[in-house]
Design a protein around this nucleic acid. Structure first.
Lengths: 116, 116
DNA sequence: CTACGATATGCTAGTGCTGGCATAACGCTA
DNA sequence: TAGCGTTATGCCAGCACTAGCATATCGTAG
């Protein structure tokens, strides 16, 4: 019976979630591949789903996350705005730090003398 | 636009959630009030809902969390088993530590020079 | 022996979010 | 001017989770 901690980290404004792991990973993938389509595919998401996530965050944030072009040689493209890039950088550092700390603390608090 | 971190902490076995904040808070309330009915009410939960949460954790854990009596002077009562008490103690320490750390780290990582 | 307050549990309606389907528009390229 | 790959978006079905309703049972007190 090996247990492990699970953290769902997100950022709130007021009491509603603005973004979390899924959105940040999506932004990273889009940045890497250059298109929403490929970024979504890399995470196993449909275009529709990924687009919905991005739009939802933009709406809550009141700022654009993607700079997109439609049509053209490659069909189109998307790159992160400065706002989005800063979000990814800040959140990633935060997320890793908390995850690492939680793992250590979990092992300390749940140190088992095991059932007698 | 003041943001704040939100942590959903839970404990997994394999890839399914065994328990988290809601279950632990419920156990604490039951311990405090002595009955499932009053513990649930204190958290604004229906008896049915609270009972379901407890049973779900017991099933996943394969261990009883409540020592209950039915009928009698007060109608009945529930108290935590040693297993449940240990769970509450371990998880609470863990949860507070991670929450505090996350708060500090959030402020550090998201330190804003604010939009120019 | 009746009333009360609690545990115990199945069934199901409501509810909110997720994501799929369909469709349109766009701009290069051949 | 036809084709391709991408962005853009409305609509709605499905699914998971919540919690209310209904009911049964139990043990003490009066």
């Amino acid at each position: 019976m090996s247990m492990e901690p699970d953290l769902r980290v997100s950022v709130l404004e007021g009491r509603r979630t603005v973004y979390g792991d899924p959105e940040i990973r999506l932004l990273e993938a889009i940045s890497q591949y250059g298109t929403l389509t490929d970024g979504a595919a890399a995470l196993g998401l449909s275009y529709r789903c990924a687009w919905g996530k991005i739009k939802a965050v933009e709406a809550k944030l009141g700022q654009k996350l993607l700079e997109s072009t439609v049509g053209g040689s490659g069909g189109g493209s998307s790159r992160l705005t400065d706002t989005a890039q800063r979000l990814v950088d800040q959140y990633s550092r935060f997320r890793v730090a908390v995850g690492d700390y939680a793992q250590r603390e979990f092992e300390r608090c749940f140190a088992e003398e095991e059932q007698p």
